[in-house]
Design a protein around this nucleic acid. Structure first.
Lengths: 158, 158
DNA sequence: AGCAATTTGACAATACGTTGTCATTATGTT
DNA sequence: AACATAATGACAACGTATTGTCAAATTGCT
């Protein structure tokens, strides 16, 4: 049903807004915002230091958006750029000691908060929701790039 | 599990971004954006013309955000403000004939698009996802306003 | 080696959302 | 009637994201 899908879409918008607001509340005491927290997390997650443009791709955002936040984090000393032996311009983003400390503070706040959110909701329902959201997102992403698919088809014929 | 909830949160962020991008693609040809489309929809939905602040509450957004979009829509002639007999400043937002036409164009595009998104996903799974998202959002919203609940408790005791 | 395409970061313009402040208008209580 | 409170819109400052453009650096193909 299209109307169910429409309901899901509207609910996704609303939940996204509430999550951002809640995330801001959660980490504002330690001088973070949701966006900065997410960038710190993306930098922390990598095993090897990466340039900002690479991190942006990992996050599914434009590199300019991440660049701006990363620069702000660097000004505040949470993140630093190290020289990249393979690329003179594309310096590598790494957490500073302070950045790692702040990020761990944020995660320590996030853990009990996420547990509280999950309380009362069945694990299988949550996983069903995750799978539905992922299916819809993947469909949107393939819709957005029909060109590449067509090229793949052409390659197969060639 | 907290980690399942974290996965759901991240997936919500990603889907939100894809939905906004897809919505923009869907209605950009008729000069709309996702945000303007949503405001038109909120104005269209009301049985009686309402002031902008009231519409913003209906949408769960700040009145300033909606005001800005509504003003832009008024400049483009999709929306008009009529005098409010009950309030000199709070004029009432109504769709113009052009606004109604554009909104109906947008809905005509949305219908088959939403159907395509829903295809291949079970109705019950979609409804489970809706219920999970709604539960999490409501929990966030009650967390955000512990004051009022406490006041209600106090009122009962008083 | 040379040249085209890609990657990266910087910068500007724009869209969308927030909070805060202010003046004006209603509302409600005393 | 008077005064405190709430609602509304205007304005400003800011945070987050987008696209577009540009120059520099890298990569890849011939």
């Amino acid at each position: 049903m299209a109307s169910d899908m429409t309901t899901l879409i509207i609910e996704t918008f609303r939940l996204n807004g509430e999550l951002l607001a809640a995330g801001d509340r959660l980490v504002s005491a330690i001088g973070l915002t949701s966006a900065r927290w997410q960038v710190l997390g993306a930098v922390d997650m990598t095993t090897v230091p990466l340039p900002v443009a690479h991190i942006a791709r990992n996050m599914g955002l434009s590199r300019q958006a991440v660049q701006r936040v990363a620069n702000a984090l660097a000004v505040e000393g949470l993140l630093a750029f190290t020289e990249n032996p393979h690329h003179a311009r594309a310096r590598l983003a790494v957490l500073t000691a302070k950045g790692r400390r702040v990020f761990e503070d944020a995660m320590a706040r996030q853990r009990p908060w996420a547990e509280g959110l999950a309380r009362g909701i069945g694990v299988s329902e949550v996983n069903t929701a995750i799978n539905v959201l992922r299916s819809v997102r993947e469909k949107l992403q393939t819709d957005a790039k029909p060109k590449e698919d067509q090229l793949h088809v052409l390659e197969k014929h060639a």
